[in-house]
Nucleic acid binder design. Structure first.
Lengths: 160, 160
DNA sequence: TGTTAATAGTCCGATTACGTACTATTATGG
DNA sequence: CCATAATAGTACGTAATCGGACTATTAACA
């Protein structure tokens, strides 16, 4: 069936969120497996900690597919990977299907709200409405909207 | 490690999004497995279609745990389930940990935006910042924040 | 009546991910 | 020097999910 954590390219293999994260992260700078795990954990405040049993085989798989490559093996058996040109292309291809990912994003959000209930805080509801209005803005009003939001952000920061 | 699709109660077993969806859906009205699959597929526009190989064993597992119960077996072997009191309690308990689910929601969103590219519109980035500030507001400032957001919403609506 | 499609669920091999023990290599500090 | 902690990765049994073939029972239609 279809999973919330997989994203496909039209011609090609679906990729898990972890695989995509790896490609994306390595596209910014080379890293080791350990680094990647640390990065995910940090970025997510500990809410997503893929297991080593998942990450390392996946790295080897991606390497086998020539999407990433070992550029250095250092101390403590540290293996540093970088993304290949082919890997970048794969990432770009999947990004091009950005519609799907954003739809899944919205879907996930709706599911959570559905099951767990809406924002208990009314501010969250307002935020959602704001987002909706933004989505529906006619093209060309971006600059104006940004000004409104910047003002809003300033005001909110002053509360704290 | 920690998965994006699992939500825990402090004392008790983590539950997958599918399990929670089942409990939640059955809490609104009894349904068969086939009904549940149809509902998910419809609600998600086809973006999430759990496999039968997953759903049916899960239903049986939840039944074995007395979180759901068979209330009727009808034509074509149709088995209608309802949530039990224990199931409702489990759902309520997990809901009580709403913080985690909303954090995962935000996290998922951030990951998608990170990998697939942010809002092409800069306003989206500001919106995220606004949300962050909201999350970090000290308790008691809710009313004030709501006022700021309401003003913001009005301003935005005036643009369109 | 017979055929086809839809409803409803079982079964199972393959794939993915988890949880964690284990191994090895430094780095740090007493 | 030794003990401990951190870095870095391997290995593997268990759990969850997929993908889809298969079975059975209606329901609809010619």
């Amino acid at each position: 069936m279809t999973s919330l954590l997989k994203f496909g390219s039209r011609q090609g293999k679906e990729r898990s969120l972890l695989a995509l994260f790896i490609l994306h992260s390595l596209s910014t700078s080379p890293k080791s497996g350990y680094d990647l795990l640390a990065e995910i954990k940090e970025k997510t405040g500990g809410l997503w900690v893929p297991s080593k049993g998942t990450l390392y085989p996946l790295l080897h798989q991606l390497e086998g597919e020539h999407l990433i490559a070992v550029i250095e093996t250092g101390k403590r058996a540290k293996t540093t990977f970088e993304v290949t040109e082919s890997g970048r292309e794969t990432l770009d291809t999947v990004k091009t299907q950005g519609k799907e990912s954003h739809r899944k994003m919205a879907l996930y959000k709706n599911l959570i709200l559905d099951i767990f209930g809406g924002a208990k805080v009314n501010a969250k509801g307002l935020l959602f409405e704001i987002k909706t209005v933004l989505d529906e803005l006619p093209p060309g009003n971006e600059h104006h909207a940004v000004q409104v939001l910047e003002q809003c952000l300033d005001d909110l920061k002053r509360i704290g």
